[in-house]
């Protein structure tokens, strides 16, 4: 006789962790940023020396600090998911608040970076490198803002599902940055 309580492992779409719509959003965003970064690398071929010179105006150390900030924020969001699954709402909210605060820290550092570029007279038209720089990092910063809003909404209505979906968006923002940072700032 078969054990009725035994569950078969999920397959296909059902095996995907979290919400399917969030995965569709994540894949869409990754495709957009992926295309942007590939275009950046492609255009770089037309003027490698100009791109290298333009890159010297970026501060890789500050961007490295921002990477640590965002990755740590992602870790806190992942801990919020675990707390939510254990039913600890207060702990979930604390982790989400901490993740959001680090998101704000990321934006403040990014804002200081933009202010520094502006003070140097660098804008979209200075070089095609900076067109990509402002477009990709600016679009990413908008996603950080959207992520902070989503985490705030999740903190308001904490459920394991909401927390997982909100954290998944935040991890997508994290994932984009770990690819954008080396390509834009370090190569």
């Amino acid at each position: 006789m078969k054990d009725a309580t035994k569950q078969t492992p999920a397959e296909g779409i059902d095996a995907l962790p979290g919400d399917l719509m969030m995965w569709i959003l994540i894949v869409s965003e990754l495709l957009v940023f992926g295309a942007g970064l590939a275009a950046f690398m492609g255009v770089r071929l037309t003027d490698p020396a100009g791109f290298s010179e333009a890159q010297t105006h970026l501060n890789a150390t500050t961007a490295g600090i921002n990477t640590v900030v965002l990755v740590t924020s992602g870790w806190l969001a992942a801990l919020a998911v675990q707390a939510s699954e254990m039913g600890n709402i207060l702990r979930t909210r604390l982790f989400l608040a901490a993740a959001s605060i680090l998101g704000v820290v990321f934006l403040v550092i990014k804002g200081a970076e933009y202010a520094d570029k502006s003070a140097q007279g660098i804008d979209f038209e200075t070089h095609s490198f900076f067109l990509f720089y402002y477009m990709l990092t600016g679009f990413h910063a908008m996603h950080v803002i959207a992520g902070i809003v989503i985490l705030a909404l999740v903190s308001w209505k904490v459920t394991p599902r909401n927390t997982e979906v909100g954290a998944a968006f935040w991890h997508m923002v994290d994932l984009v940055w770990v690819l954008l940072f080396p390509i834009m700032y370090l190569l």
């Binding site: 397959e11 962790p17 994290d174 940072f181 080396p182």
Partner: peptide
Amino acid sequence: SLAILTLAWIKAQVILRVYLGLQNAPSW
């Protein structure tokens, strides 16, 4: 450059597998 990109590749894999939970969905 290749070393830096390889490190980024590993970081992206870690985020996908652990933070986004794909280690629990091997086929995905």
